[in-house]
């Protein structure tokens, strides 16, 4: 029943490898930038708050596929040469996901009492030190379930990179499909693989949520 999949298994899984790589890069960049975007969103300095808020609201209100397209078609005009689709996709995802991670971090930062931040300042810690050793670690732990959920969404979103010709999992399935004409089994297989990974991810998220509730450390 999965004959076309079995015949092209290596090729398909190579695509899945690209999907995983893309996800890893998007998450590393998106979460790191998100931490900073979140800080910008609670900044009292309007020269920081306003531009960051504009960026977040703008990106969150346009479809991801447009961000990917734009970046891929606009960057060569600015850079003077075409970008590698993988790098182009990674940067688009970081720009897009950082706004979502940023809002998660913002909620995490806002759950921290002002006096806790005052306590850190009163020991002589600077803003950067307070962010690095107090704000970010606490927000990260408190928001872990949401961060995992958003990571799963990012993983699913990476399939959109096929529109710029990146040979990730879905793209390779469609290449095989063009040759073998076995749409149902090929896309069925892709769906199953995505489902398994996302299902495991959501279970991990649930585990951390329950653990957080039980220990009450934060």
């Amino acid at each position: 029943m999965f004959d076309a999949v079995i015949r092209n298994f290596g090729f398909l899984m190579g695509g899945f490898g690209v999907t995983l790589e893309l996800t890893a890069c998007a998450l590393a960049g998106g979460i790191t930038l998100g931490m900073i975007v979140g800080l910008g969103r609670i900044s009292r300095n309007r020269w920081i708050y306003q531009p960051v808020t504009l960026y977040v609201n703008f990106i969150r209100n346009i479809p991801l596929i447009l961000v990917i397209f734009w970046f891929y078609f606009v960057m060569p005009i600015i850079a003077g040469q075409p970008l590698n689709p993988f790098i182009s996709a990674v940067i688009s995802f970081i720009i897009f996901e950082a706004t979502y991670f940023g809002e998660i971090f913002r909620a995490g930062y806002q759950s921290i009492s002002v006096d806790l931040i005052h306590a850190a300042y009163s020991t002589g810690l600077t803003y950067t030190q307070t962010a690095r050793y107090v704000l970010i670690p606490i927000a990260f732990r408190r928001m872990l379930p949401s961060l995992i959920t958003q990571s799963i969404i990012t993983f699913q979103d990476t399939s959109l990179a096929f529109v710029i010709g990146l040979q990730e999992f879905v793209r390779r399935a469609s290449i095989v499909d063009n040759l073998e004409v076995r749409s149902i089994q090929l896309y069925g297989f892709v769906g199953i693989v995505f489902f398994i990974f996302c299902f495991i991810g959501s279970k991990i998220s649930l585990h951390f949520e329950e653990k957080g509730r039980k220990t009450g450390v934060l």
Partner: peptide, 10 residues
Amino acid sequence: VFQRFELYPH
């Protein structure tokens, strides 16, 4: 020193 201690919980 604060009313609600404000220790770093992590």
